[in-house]
Design a protein around this nucleic acid. Sequence first.
DNA 1: GCAAAAGTGTTTGCGCTACACCCATGA
DNA 2: TCATGGGTGTAGCGCAAACACTTTTGC
Lengths: 234, 234
Amino acid sequence: MYSYEYPRPSVTVDCVIFAWDSENSDLKVLLIERAHNPFAGSWAFPGGFVDMDEDLETAARRELEEETGMNDLFMEQLFTFGAPNRDPRGRVISVAYYALVSLAHHADQIKAASDAADTQWVSVKELSELELAFDHKEVMKIALERLRGKVRYQPIGFELLPEKFPLSQLQILYEQVLGMTLDKRNFRRKILKTKLVLPLDEYQQNVSHRAAQLYKFDKDTYEQLVKEGFVFEI
Amino acid sequence: MYSYEYPRPSVTVDCVIFAWDSENSDLKVLLIERAHNPFAGSWAFPGGFVDMDEDLETAARRELEEETGMNDLFMEQLFTFGAPNRDPRGRVISVAYYALVSLAHHADQIKAASDAADTQWVSVKELSELELAFDHKEVMKIALERLRGKVRYQPIGFELLPEKFPLSQLQILYEQVLGMTLDKRNFRRKILKTKLVLPLDEYQQNVSHRAAQLYKFDKDTYEQLVKEGFVFEI
DNA sequence: GCAAAAGTGTTTGCGCTACACCCATGA
DNA sequence: TCATGGGTGTAGCGCAAACACTTTTGC
């Protein structure tokens, strides 16, 4: 037992994992079906309590690894949710993070863990049909707004793609996330002009049409350019 | 006494109050000299513990009112700081907020309160000379980055000005916050084109040169335009 | 009349947009 | 040979940047 002079809230971390499904050109998030109450049977973002000697982001990464087996993702703090009644068990403040991965690269890493009866990737378009636990609907809304806002001004779209990708995939990703269509020629010109994507001597395989050239994001160049005052923008 | 099966962190809120000092064309933040340990004598952002039945933002506004007498400010969540050793008293997680005010409008509201031996507005340029408590140096850094980033894409600059202001003040504010000079004619054209600032039939008073026309930010029009897909940008 | 800041237009060039066809590949 | 997506160039327009002088006011 731990005793304190004043009452204290519990603190948890929750992770919104966005994954880009290249095959279906679809943005998905990872949900876990809650095995226990509260909200047993509802879907929730992976998360859990913060250890006392553990940094917040460390906690988020640990929970993620425990519940899904995924590690070493791009991850940023999203928002802290602290409405007094957001958890029926009592005062629970949740520090939410969001992460970006390529589905192809990570889907196979997923494993069900102790307190997860089931795990699924859900298209963000179909999310409204699911019942989410706690205030996770609100969390989702904030996460999507953040992703949409951030993708324009920072090259985080690449985090959703495999290391090597054709430019068409990048374009479709942007079109889906931003909810608009983009002109193919203009898009390519813009992206290539930045010098942030390097053409490789590799091509798509096993496609029943002309194979597209593959590119990769050049993080080193990006960081170099940022130092010189470069601002990424789509 | 309150007892729990597992240990729990304390949760605090801290507020970075940015104020625009029109007279000196200077961006300032509010600091409170700590009267008690830890960090007695150091300067810190106003803040305190979150009550158990209180929303996070409500807590931030309450602490602000208690310590400075200011209320009803523009305020947004900034970041949550949770490094295990950021507070020598134990595990304390701090949800930081930032607020924007006009110094002329609020400076007189400031009052010293119970746990504040002293209170001062410090120019952000002089902050490096002061010793800040806890991890508030880091908090300050993040707050400035946020302000600089956000001021370009959202009309929050107006929150730093009095209700009625000359365009030259707005320009100087942007120049200071963004750290660049702007062309007067281009700036005026750009601002006026958006229709977000309304010219008033009022003019500066008590200036020893031609009096500038005053303008005000038109929040209603802004919200209307946002609904139509308008994106503010400087 | 002088100091100090307010206010005002035009030109130029770059960047963004719009737009359609041929190519390579596998089935 | 057909279907599928890959890949490419140009013209025109609008917007942003560069730039300097006159006006008003108080002292």
